[in-house]
């Protein structure tokens, strides 16, 4: 097959996938918010990326990891971890690396330094498509079960809002498809950068359900499923969302 022909296919494929594929929350934001995310000098999430970059150097991460080699890493997470026999997410990997290899005290998942390190690492993959780890099929299946399970006093599932009703309006707010491709991200509601786990906690609390414990097998399974259903979407870290 001639290279021409092969290339001819790609845009068509992209178009077809684009039409039916996942839609980033970015696309349904106002032009002003899109501009805020796009502009590195104005995106408030970049402050965390900068902080992460400084920490990365100060904590000696660069001794093993060249920043350039981090490109693409976040697009492959959550990944299969042989030692755990299951998924590990980016925050989990960073925590493990710091503690076991660098001998540093643990950082809580939601702490500012951890969010900063995570946003710095994920930022290196900005623009790269999410490529789910094929070894996580089992976790994704469990995650999908959780995604479709109705829960909480309001008895709603993730799927009801973020699949069936995506694009509708819950009160004044647009319901996005709920993809994880921009985390950690700067949410105007938080007025801060936060993790996917924090966002999930918000949703669970919203339907008056007990949130999943961050880093628990259930939380990792749901995360693996969310990244699986967002396959192909570019990493946007640090995204900006309302």
């Amino acid at each position: 097959m001639s290279p021409w022909r092969r290339q001819g296919w790609l845009p068509l494929l992209a178009l077809l996938l684009g039409a039916a594929g996942p839609r980033s929350g970015f696309e349904t934001m106002t032009p002003e918010l899109q501009a805020m995310q796009r502009d590195d000098a104005g995106n408030p999430g970049m402050l965390s990326v900068l902080e992460g970059e400084a920490l990365f150097a100060r904590e000696g991460c660069a001794a093993c990891h060249a920043a350039a080699a981090l490109r693409g890493v976040a697009a492959r997470y959550p990944a299969h971890d042989a030692a755990r026999g299951g998924p590990i997410d980016l925050a989990g990997r960073i925590a493990e690396c710091r503690e076991q290899r660098a001998g540093r005290p643990p950082l809580p998942r939601e702490s500012q330094p951890m969010l900063a390190l995570q946003s710095f690492v994920a930022h290196q993959s900005r623009g790269l498509p999410i490529t789910p780890d094929p070894r996580l099929a089992e976790a994704r299946a469990e995650g999908e079960r959780l995604f479709r399970e109705r829960r909480g006093q309001l008895n709603l599932s993730c799927a009801q809002c973020h699949e069936t009703l995506a694009g509708g309006r819950l009160a004044g707010a647009n319901i996005p498809e709920g993809h994880p491709n921009g985390y950690p991200l700067y949410r105007l509601e938080w007025q801060a950068l936060g993790s996917l786990q924090r966002r999930l906690r918000g949703c669970f609390t919203g339907v008056r359900a007990e949130p999943l414990a961050p880093g628990s097998p259930a939380a990792l399974a749901l995360e693996a499923y969310l990244f699986g259903r967002a396959a192909g979407l570019p990493i946007e870290t640090p995204a900006v969302r309302p």
Binding site: E149, R151, G152, Q153, N155, A209
Partner: peptide
């Protein structure tokens, strides 16, 4: 949601 039934609910937060 069922406004006056708690039957069949899953994972309800403690407060509710």
């Amino acid at each position: 949601p069922a406004y006056f039934s708690t039957a069949g609910l899953v994972g309800v937060a403690d407060a509710w």
